[in-house]
Design a protein around this nucleic acid. Structure first.
Lengths: 245, 245
DNA sequence: CTGGTCATGTGGTCACTACCAGTTAGATTA
DNA sequence: TAATCTAACTGGTAGTGACCACATGACCAG
């Protein structure tokens, strides 16, 4: 990561500056609760306008790296374990962050007609063809979740089992192959008990408590793209969120 | 809500404009997926600069009311049931939004010495006095959660049982009496089973599944203020989050 | 009919300028 | 000494002006 702003770089300047500042925080060059240079000082240091400085700082504030105090200065947030705040992460990204090796077993991958309940959530007519993917999610090779995804894709936009095999991250495939960028999701969490089939697949006793997550994923244009249902083993999974006002 | 910008109003203009635009969306004057006037048009309509217009729109985009498409325009998001996105809400606000009548029974309210585990989460020395509040939370008069809060307050900053009786919202008391504004929280969710005592209090069978939430609340200056543990009845509570990238 | 070009409208980025609103520390005053 | 004032910081709000990147539709050439 460079230490100066390159005006010929394709990246916008506020973006470059944000990276530089983030780096200084992550490297520990700037310690928690200490102030960073004032906006007017940064203006001189990096030879860019205050508008741009503020835009860079805005980003870092929203991401939880910095906080401002009117009249006093801008300060480094005390670092928490989780870097990004309430970020939308895929299952595999999520586990990697916790230092657990993600893995998966694909149980099936096929086209189905949208059931009424799911069609409603995806805001499409009942019966529209959807790509359904059933997977067992593994953490360090032990089952921790049972995941069923329904993707609203056009028939041309096929995803093969080998596509999935590679990265494992469905979100990366959506982004790279179809230019669908996951940008928002609504998620509910509740508690249920394992049915006999679920118990077998997750290698737990029947009736063991599970965390049930249902998520609807939206693309850039706020169109619903995916409906996912995940059953997590209660004894192996903890859900984390950072909430902001 | 006024329909024009008042330069003498104490509220900043971008704030006033955001309110006006939000109102038009909520009133249905601007329909989902339709475009709103361009930034240059709004400049003329409200006689304020594009800088300010963009700041107002930025807020609404982050709150999920609008989305932008480069080169095409700014559009109204399809409205979801929940208005604000991933907002930090108190228990009572949360229930009210769902149309459930919140209630509570205060089981105890007293000062205790911080146990090691909690002291660590609140980033204070073990043994520091903390205000502990134990409550049974009710929804439409049926128990749905068992809540234990530990508040890092100075001994002068007392909260009495009658304070709590009134609003019921601890967050409002913190804000109004002590100028502590809840601005961020880290929360984990997991599954457990009810112990005999918990079962009695929540009026459920022993061993019934519960949703266990642990939350650390931070104030404006990112200092930890409260540690809360809530046990939700699995059959009566569903947790909702909106995630953003 | 097809493909390219181009003008125009949109949001995105950036600089410069000005003034307002809290905070703080040092000078001043009672 | 203690309270007050003030100047010099800090971030917050706002206007103006410029140019870039992307989308779209009208037009034209093949």
């Amino acid at each position: 990561m460079s230490r100066t702003i390159d005006p010929y770089n394709a990246l916008p300047k506020y973006n470059q500056l944000a990276s530089i500042l983030r780096q200084k925080i992550e490297d520990g060059e700037w310690l928690p609760r200490t102030s960073i240079p004032s906006e007017r000082q940064l203006e001189v240091i990096y030879s860019i306008s205050r508008t741009t400085i503020r835009e860079a700082i805005d980003h870092l504030v929203r991401q939880g790296y910095l906080y401002r105090e009117h009249g006093r200065g801008t300060f480094v947030s005390p670092q928490k374990l989780q870097k990004g705040l309430m970020e939308l992460t895929s299952f595999s990204e999520d586990l990697l962050k916790r230092g657990i090796q993600p893995g998966q077993i694909i149980r099936s991958l096929n086209w189905v007609d949208a059931p009424a309940k799911i069609a409603q959530k995806l805001e499409i007519p009942t019966g529209t063809p959807l790509l359904r993917i059933e997977r067992i999610r593994l953490g360090d090779n032990i089952p921790i979740g049972l995941q069923t995804s329904y993707l609203a894709l056009s028939p041309e936009q096929a995803i093969s089992e080998s596509d999935m095999q590679g990265s494992g991250s469905l979100y990366r495939i959506l982004q790279e192959k179809f230019n669908i960028i996951p940008s928002e999701a609504d998620e509910t969490l509740e508690v249920t008990l394992a049915t006999p089939e679920e118990a077998v697949l997750l290698e737990i006793p029947e009736g063991a408590p599970l965390l049930l997550s249902e998520r609807v994923l939206f693309a850039q244009n706020r169109k619903p793209v995916e409906y996912v249902k995940i059953l997590y083993r209660g004894d192996r999974y903890q859900y984390f969120v950072r909430l902001t006002r």
